[in-house]
Design a protein around this nucleic acid. Structure first.
Lengths: 106, 106
DNA sequence: TTAATATATGAATGATTGCTCATATATTAA
DNA sequence: TTAATATATGAGCAATCATTCATATATTAA
């Protein structure tokens, strides 16, 4: 394969590749997957999320921050609680589609 | 939210979450995204992949190894070449679906 | 007011990752 | 045979990441 390639290979441009990778990275961690799964059911506050996942408040809070930066979740303050919800249909359907694939065999 | 939560929150079990996260991790890196994009077009040997992406043979070879471990690509040896192809429809459709989402707005 | 609860956040840390560089092996060409 | 090409792979390294721990702020309850 030294001669210039016949039908030229058009690689996906770097910017698009990075955008895509960033999207998938959002769900590349089990904790974030579980947070998204929980929020796909319903809105939840940090404390209940931490309890549901059996993880520290701090760990959940940090992950919620990264999900916020990715604009995958939105939040509303209510008293001393902060309720989080999914803020991105794309991620929701990506999550649901993949869950189905995993659950009903490859 | 101290009282045990009304409608109990059933967190996604850890095993499924890890499986899902692993799947997304496969496409969480721009280089792997570009490799998958190229292979979604057609089978390619390592050298041509490296050329198409403008990256070192070693870098591509290492990434192909991780894609192999994830069973996302298969390969066939032909003389001194090794041709890689996608080996997982799920990843292919995950890739295509997400690409569409990114290209035709959120 | 003081105490308890809910959340956020910075620093520290160990683990993972993506790459380079050097090198080994295999195949083909001269 | 020797040289060139294609690929794989181990070591090393800098960067990123997920978590913990300590602590700060805000809100509600006593």
């Amino acid at each position: 394969m030294t001669e210039s390639v016949e039908t030229s290979i058009t690689a996906l441009d770097e910017h698009t590749a990075e955008q895509l990778a960033r999207t998938f990275k959002a769900l590349s961690d089990p904790t974030r997957v579980r947070i998204v799964a929980a929020l796909a059911e319903r809105e939840l506050c940090v404390h209940d999320l931490a309890e549901a996942l059996g993880m520290s408040q701090s760990a959940i809070s940090h992950q919620l921050m990264t999900l916020r930066e990715m604009r995958l979740v939105r939040f509303t303050k209510e008293g001393r609680h902060v309720f989080y919800a999914l803020d991105n249909d794309h991620i929701d359907s990506l999550f649901r589609q993949s869950l189905e694939h995993i659950q009903h065999g490859e």
